[in-house]
Amino acid sequence: MKQLSFAAFISFWSVAGTLFVLSLLVPAPRSVEPADRRYTLQDIARHHSVDDCWMAIAGQVYDFSQFIPKHPAPAATMVAWCGKEATQGMKTKGYGNDHSPAAWAMAEAYRIGVLKSE
């Protein structure tokens, strides 16, 4: 078991190091969406269903329609925030705990613009 643990230890640093170096070497993909397009809360409110779900979070606008089936919590958890300003939902998950850095980074892939103040 000691040999297995040592092998796991070496593997861990090999993989973590490789991921880190790759992140430095591989250029970030260019967004295909017009990330600076501006939407109002009224625009967002029109997309309020499980199949068409937009949210405003921390000044950014996201289209999570394709992500809802992948979200670990039941769909109803996210649908409750569709068409709304959802910063509170993202930052508290309903019980005070913020989403992980990975979740915030994942959300970036669904960003479609910024929130226009009305």
Binding site: F20, L22, S23, V26, P29, A102, A105, M106
Partner: peptide
Amino acid sequence: ESLTAAVASLFS
């Protein structure tokens, strides 16, 4: 999702 998301889940 992306390499950025993978690295963000490790280093933050």
